[in-house]
Nucleic acid binder design. Structure first.
Lengths: 195, 195, 195, 195
DNA sequence: CATGAATGAGTGTTCATTCAT
DNA sequence: TATGAATGAACACTCATTCAT
């Protein structure tokens, strides 16, 4: 029962691309490199991706999917919003550490392609999910009312990601990971509660 | 006595590079394009830049210099930290709008040569300057004491830049520029004061 | 009983090929383009043609068939050879106008496979037919005796085709179509009669 | 004294191209083949020709130049128009024999490029030269007056070339070369004189 | 007969970089 | 310093052809 479906080939190419581009960068990675590792023929690449650049949005999408899956899985049970936020921060730091190369390639790749706006559209369901959590927290009285849920969600997500990226990618490690995460947590909590 | 000094040629090449790369992206811009617009010979490029990639840090450096000049100039006079912060936010939004293409090209250059650390070093004096302002605010009692000046400065700078980039580059324009800036301001102020 | 016979598919592919190659040229036309327009699968092409190059002789054959059908149909009734020749010239000009793209593609196929001899063999029945007309004219005393029928037939056919091609393909339109045809006619008639 | 001028490289590339494309055809000849034989680098080709297709008009131009040089040189001295025409026909047969491959590649190449009209423009000075000879012959009373000099010149040139091409390229050699040339001569003479 | 996914060899073209002047 | 002709390595992408179903 040979079951090499189309989905398999798509994934093989995508994973190979992620691995190699993460290592060598987009510019230095050739299609030839990718297909060799994916175990398919040169032409097969173009059955699944319109061009080399078309890889980037696919990689970004993939990253976000993984991120959401991991976070959702780990934040399912939480006593209150602050426990949720703590777990969320931990997860983001952990994911950033694991996928730092992919994150960098998404930033640079989407910029190369002049398609930075795509980030926003890919993030949409992620933003949405966070908004729901935040709304609930407001309803519970854990977060001050009057908060602009939409804007604040994006702000928090970006702030946490930025802190993690500065720590793991920018190698700005004056403090420990724990200290960094604590600063993030308190900075956010102060802003969202009446002390 | 019109004498084309070395500095002139360096700047001519750098400016030409910024213009063309902003338009067409790094990948699609050739040295040939750049020298043509700069009005120098092909080989002259290599008298001033070691390689094509060496342009990116120079462009980034240039952007930071312009940013710091503009901001310093406009924030010289301020009654208190919050007036300073307001002006700062305005300036960042304005600069982001004007230089969005250059910012994008800096992102796209991120991954080249794994130059992420260079990025942080270029930001260093910028961070330093902000830290000084923040220290002063704490000394004045405008900002809660106990704040980690170093971490918080970076956080603020990144948060403001991110909000502006989401607005102008990610084209996330659900709210007006003014509303967006106001949200940023209050989010930060809440976090840095005892209500 | 609508049954797509083999002949149908052969013709569908051939017609599609003629259309697209006429538009885009042989080199820029892919088998993929052809089968898409013909409404058959990629592999089906190879059930009817050995290769892409095998299309050219088939297209040429097709053009000659059409030409002969049209000319025969229109020259059936003629008082004498000169009326016949006049009609013939008209028909060639008209066909050249209608099929100029196909003619060009036949030229472009000339060099492929050094297939020049194939060309002559395709023309054979055409030459033969014209020879019969010419023989008859000589028998009738309309054309001077002593004429080399074989050589002269080819000469005339080529001369008329060339004049038409210069007019429609070379766009050498200093004179009107009518003037051009009249020159051809008189040039030939002078040569074939004692004044 | 190394004197490799630009003209030299242009010619080296052009000659190499003519040789190889004549042998293998345009499609089967790669730029790599050409530059290797020309003894220049890959990139150098593009300093002299915009593209592979740009070779064809250059080759055609070259062929016409050679043709005119040879013919002019050999027809300088002639007692009358008919001696001139005889020599002309001989020359065309001889040139066609020598350059048959180049002729084929010009036909097919220009057709591939959809630039058949270029033929006409390249032929212009050739036509002009023949017209002058023909005018003189009419002035001398050797050729019937009332002849359309422009049209007839083109006709004669094409007729002679066609006969030669049928003989050497189409390999239509039922008769000897001499017979073929004699037929051409008499066919033309009959048409241009009152018998 | 028909299909269309898969193949992988093949190539025109670009362009960063060098170097003799 | 400055030039710009020359280099040649590198690569994305195409497409004729095959073959398992």
């Amino acid at each position: 029962m040979s079951t090499a479906t189309q989905q398999d080939k798509y994934n093989a190419i995508l994973q190979a691309a992620i691995e190699i581009i993460s290592e060598k960068g987009l510019h230095s990675t050739s299609i030839s490199d990718i297909v060799k590792r994916a175990g398919v023929a040169q032409g097969t690449f173009y059955l699944y991706f319109r061009s080399k650049n078309a890889l980037i949005p696919a990689i970004a999408q993939n990253l976000i999917s993984i991120t959401m899956d991991k976070i959702k899985e780990n934040t399912q049970q939480h006593a209150d919003f602050w426990e949720f936020l703590t777990t969320y921060i931990h997860q983001i730091y952990s994911i950033t550490d694991e996928y730092k190369d992919v994150i960098v390639l998404c930033y640079s790749g989407l910029a190369i392609d002049h398609s930075m706006e795509i980030w926003e559209s890919i993030y949409q369901p992620y933003y949405q999910w966070f908004q729901d959590e935040l709304k609930q927290a407001i309803a519970q009285g854990e977060v001050i009312s009057g908060t602009n849920v939409q804007w604040t969600s994006k702000m928090i997500i970006n702030l946490v990601e930025n802190a993690a990226e500065r720590f793991y990618i920018g190698r700005d490690q004056d403090m420990t990971k724990e200290q960094s995460m604590t600063e993030v947590f308190h900075f956010l909590k102060r802003s969202m509660t009446n002390s």
